[in-house]
Amino acid sequence: MSNVMKTAARGGLQLDRFMPEAAKLHRLSALLTLVILIIGFSLASQSFFSVNNTLTVLLQTSVIGLLGIGMTMVIITGGIDLSVGSVLALSGVVTGMCVKAGLPVIPAMGLGVVAGAACGAVNGLVITRMRIPPFVATLGMMLIARGLALQLTGAAPISQLGAAFGRLGNGALFRVVEMQPNGFPKVIFPGIPYPAILLLVVALGAAYILRCRQIGRHIYATGSNEEAARLSGVRVDMTKLYAYVMSGALAGVAGNVLMSRLVTAQPSEGVMYELDAIAAAVIGGASLSGGVGAVSGTMIGAFIIGILRNGLNMAGVSAFIQQIIIGVVVIGAVWIDQVRNRN
């Protein structure tokens, strides 16, 4: 082989000492940020680093996490899903109405998730068949789903859904309660909240799909170079449709978790949650230009947001200041993404 070849090979080796680390580096820096946040808040507030508060954070993060996983799939294809917050509300409302209509809780929740998946399917079809950019298509769905949720309920929350409806959001595994002699129960271990377990299962499932299944490989390929994927025989349209359906269905799951926690179907719930989900994915290293992202990163991103909210609350920072801080974090994360792409 010629010198040209050798130089090229050496150049490649030199490059790969820096480059492939970039994605991992981003995830690592996110993880480091998470650890610093935990240490910082633990120092600021005694009760932050306690079993109870840890479980509360798990519970609070599960909704962002579920939305973030679906969002990650969509973002890897090179798209965006702005409708998840509204779809979450619509799904919860559908479940609530089904329960009110006399359906048992589990089938009702199933229908809620199906409603979410249907919204995702509409997103996917509008994007692939009508060739409408994902930003516009899902912005439309954001208004449509919210409008539907408000119209179906007359903008009033559906309450008195029964204890069974609240179990998913409020129940916990391995909960240990001891009756005290004075008649009051004493919680020895509050248990692992069901939403946290659900999040773990969904995260593992999504990671498996992205890493070990053909559709996962095609999701990455579509976002990396859509035309190349198409010429390689990847059914690009089906792949995108799959990602949007997953995003919609997971928004439905998240909606059920949230409404169950409130034991009320709230049509106005979930406003701006899509931004938390996008932020979680991007903080975790997903690239808005597609082809890059991982469920593990998004989980870190979701916990950064969740812990930031929780810790700031405990430190007594006002809700307005919290918004400012999270806004700065979102810009910072996207800025890091841009810098990474420029390199």
Binding site: R217, Y220, A221, G223, E227, A228, S232, V234, G291
Partner: peptide, 17 residues
């Protein structure tokens, strides 16, 4: 244009689809 997915490695590109 070679039609390669830039973020994937050589084996993944070779067997893409």
């Amino acid at each position: 244009t070679l039609a390669l997915a830039d973020h994937l490695d050589a084996p993944k590109n070779l067997f893409l689809g």
